[in-house]
Design a protein around this nucleic acid. Structure first.
Lengths: 192, 192
DNA sequence: CTTGAATTTGACTAACTAGTCAACTACATT
DNA sequence: AATGTAGTTGACTAGTTAGTCAAATTCAAG
């Protein structure tokens, strides 16, 4: 019944790209509509508000972009430390590609959104935080496995993950701030 | 000649507090004026735009808040590694205090601003980046000194600083995101 | 006490903001 | 081919935004 359309997908994609670059509050509904080639009336046919769109966009981003990349690095068969190494290298490559194609290095989309603070609807922030905590789980697992396999000596897996994950997200955020991949270089070596 | 006023200082203070919490784009000139108890006409008597105010506010923040705290930890007489330890502990304490008094943990004001990306005037971002690089210099110095004193074994001071600084800023940003000081605990131990 | 420069005020604009809505269109299903 | 429903449109509102301005006020200095 009725016609079919990919306007919803185009809106999600445009929302992610613009919010990633400019931040939640700097992006207007009009700008998202323009980028998606969708009229405002249609926007509100698909989403009840800018906040709802953003929440849906975060989930779509995780399912379609982040998760596949993470799971290919953190595959079950791969040795624990190799998983981290692969992931860090993959991130370096993908950030370089983003910079090459879009002109600026953008870092982690979820981190960018989650850090905003007040002035962003609480449930939007919560969605971004949730995506970050999903990502973090792969780190915990890898470090736990590395410990079991006797590859590293740590007494507190939770504390070790805290450090590795802070270093990783910190480097990624600093790369965005400086628009320069330098902080991402050799994270794997720094982790050890 | 003419009367004297502290309206300018009140505006700088209000701008910093609000921008730290809510981000550049979420804060309005009206909100800053309200918080400072200053009328809009007066605002534009002191600053030619919101961007100019923010730049001035960043500089004031650095001079009056960040720098004194940093310099008391990184004092010349203090042994290099002790400097880092003092600084990390000081940050932990001050973030806890901010949370106690303001209800939320806010992290680093410069980092928060610098990460915004497009959608913030380039010179505002540049001012925030500049403050971060000033901060980073104290880390380089401490690590360099620690190497000279034979306290640590590193071949590349620049790379080591990269890691320590990413870990520190990453932990601080994550503490903000989670509104929880957990990532800040034991950074000093993690650094070693 | 007078002067005049620094400061304050509030009303103003023009542009932009998120969100609404009723009419219109195209097409998958029958 | 008819039909109904999902999708589209553009003009609309009401509130907010950064920034302007001329007139009024205050008070340090002469």
């Amino acid at each position: 019944m009725g016609r079919i359309s990919d306007a919803r997908e185009r809106l999600l994609k445009a929302a992610n790209e613009l919010t990633w670059k400019q931040g939640y509050n700097a992006v207007t509904v009009d700008a998202i509509c323009d980028a998606a080639g969708v009229k405002k009336g249609s926007f509100y046919h698909y989403f009840e508000s800018k906040a709802e769109l953003t929440k849906a966009a975060i989930e779509a981003w995780w399912q379609e972009r982040s998760r596949p990349i993470i799971e290919s690095s953190f595959a079950p068969g791969v040795p624990p430390l190799e998983r981290l190494k692969r992931y860090f290298e993959g991130i370096y490559e993908s950030q370089m590609k983003i910079k090459r194609e879009g002109g600026t290095l953008l870092g982690c989309a979820f981190f960018r959104l989650a850090i905003e603070g007040e002035g962003v609807e609480p449930d939007v922030r919560e969605a971004a935080r949730h995506a970050l905590s999903r990502k973090r789980k792969y780190f915990v697992q890898a470090i736990e496995d590395a410990k079991q396999a006797g590859l590293i000596r740590v007494d507190d897996v939770e504390a070790a993950t805290q450090a590795v994950y802070s270093l990783f997200e910190g480097a990624l955020a600093r790369a965005r701030i400086q628009d320069n991949p330098e902080p991402l270089k050799g994270i794997y070596e720094q982790v050890l």
